[in-house]
Amino acid sequence: MVTAAEKVSGHKWGMAVDVDRCTGCQACVMACQAENNTTLSTEDVYRQKRTFAWIRIERYWYGEFPDVKARFIPIMCQHCENAPCEPVCPVFATYHNTEGMNVQIYNRCVGTRYCGNGCPYNVRFFNYWEPVWPKSLRNQLNPDVTVRSRGIMEKCSFCVQRIRRGVREAARDGRELQDGDIEPACVEACPTNALVFGDYNDADSRVSVMRNDDRKYTLLDKLNTFPNVVYLAQVDATEGATGGHE
């Protein structure tokens, strides 16, 4: 689907996740926290079931002992082309930008949490409390990313600050952006290269290639959200049936 957005902008950012490579190591989870000034998920926050993780690793059990498997899948905002979180926001705090991303304007958000209900992937996180850091820890906050206050929604931004910086620096140096020049923090960390980021408008980019892979699927396909994050299926090389019920 070609949207007006794509026609306007030269880029259409997307991510490809090779589930077969993901080991569940959580490097992406911590890297995202560190990059995006996410509130500390303290023990209390955990107990209140309000844990923050713009990217999370879901773990599912398959089979029974001893032929049991724990499988992992990283899930972040899918940057849906047809995002169910967007139309419900009364104040346009979450909207689609011209580069295929779902973006969040913290300043506008009034905290209805409607978008959180609207998102089928549960990747929107609400600041139930005012985020606090001990003074010394505030030194580590990333100046490129707003520190959110309480009462607002937040979620994976595709590390938009890195995209902006990448585009600007390429322009400053008078060079063309190359595939891989811009890496969100999670992609940068991922040891197994399970996460790949790039521009779908560049037909040769790795994400474009992965989007045409035989193993490509998207999450909750039937909802027609047209995510800009695509997944490559996990391969099971042992005998027996695929998928199935637990």
Partner: peptide, 13 residues
């Protein structure tokens, strides 16, 4: 803040 309620994620309402 809204934290004083029992709401969480995914039960936002």
């Amino acid at each position: 803040g809204v934290g004083v309620t029992g709401l969480n994620r995914p039960v936002y309402w």
